[in-house]
């Protein structure tokens, strides 16, 4: 017994190395596991609050651009406000609430931390479970898709950016409804690839790419980006399409977190069907 302690003491450097290394690898694997929530991340209170303070300062530099986007969106929304319509009918209609039921909820949030230069990029938002944020909610801006919520703490949440090697967002081309997936190859923050579009489809540069109705996460029709370039390699049945994301990931600061009120119902139903 004594010999064991002497042995361990003599080689404590190697043993400590092995212990710390296995701890790191354990954390790494646990974090990579999408199903389980990681606990060392910037959603934790310390890091979140620190980044929040920093962001309060840097936000001023992108204020002008953020204002432009919000103003443009306000104008768009004003267009839909009842006061901007001319009433043609004479009779009074009651809006019947049983016809339209709300499916999507929008919560405004601010980006307090982000990366764009890694292979796997994340954002941190200043909204958490106290504000009703849950895992797998969609994150968008008025001009494009941002990503999907990963971990949630009381006041913060982390978001898997579209610029993440494992991120796969279902998208379609707006004018012909052919659909594929958005994947990122990890190199350029201003180019994301749209794959699985068959070679017989007619494409044009500048076509808009939007989200599909297949995912239970994103509402249909949110802009993803515009086609920058496309090519068809000889012998390949699918295009390689380069899409310029609508969101400028380097300066994104105000986002919406979108919750789908009917998501559980849809997911449950689809699971039941595939289990048969």
């Amino acid at each position: 017994m004594k010999n064991i302690f002497v042995f361990i003491w003599r080689n404590h450097f190697v043993f400590l190395f092995l212990i710390l290394q296995s701890l790191s690898v354990y954390l790494l694997i646990q974090n990579n596991n999408y199903q389980r929530a990681g606990f060392i991340n910037s959603a934790s209170a310390t890091a979140g609050n620190f980044l929040n303070v920093y962001n309060n300062i840097t936000e001023y530099f992108s204020l002008k651009k953020a204002n432009d986007i919000l103003a443009a969106e306000n104008a768009e929304l004003k267009k839909h406000h009842p006061s901007s319509f001319f009433r043609y009918d004479v009779q009074v209609f009651n809006v019947n609430d049983t016809v339209y039921r709300q499916q999507y909820t929008y919560r405004a949030a601010r980006v307090v931390n982000k990366t764009v230069n890694k292979r796997n990029n994340y954002l941190t938002l200043n909204r958490g479970s106290l504000h009703g944020i849950e895992r797998n909610m969609a994150v968008i801006t008025p001009v494009g898709v941002v990503g999907i919520v990963k971990d949630v703490s009381a006041n913060f949440c982390t978001v898997i950016s579209m610029l993440h090697v494992n991120s796969k967002i279902s998208a379609q081309i707006k004018n012909n409804n052919y659909f594929g997936s958005m994947v990122w190859n990890g190199n350029n923050a201003s180019l994301v690839n749209l794959v699985d579009i068959p070679s017989h489809v007619k494409l044009h540069k500048g076509d808009t790419v939007i989200t599909t109705s297949f995912s239970a996460i994103f509402p249909e029709g949110v802009v993803v980006g515009t086609i920058e370039d496309f090519e068809l390699e000889p012998g390949n049945n699918f295009y390689t399409i380069k899409v310029k994301p609508g969101t400028d990931f380097r300066s994104v600061s105000n986002v919406y977190v979108v919750g789908n009120l009917l998501k559980n119902e849809q997911v449950q139903l689809e699971e039941d069907s595939t289990n048969d």
Binding site: Q21, S24, L28, I29, I40, S42, T46, N120, Y122
Partner: peptide
């Protein structure tokens, strides 16, 4: 560093290796 980059364990592992 991991705490701020959402990369639990990645930098820790590389640092411990380097220190070793």
């Amino acid at each position: 560093i991991d705490l701020f980059e959402n990369t639990a364990g990645m930098h820790a592992s590389a640092c411990v290796f380097m220190a070793f």
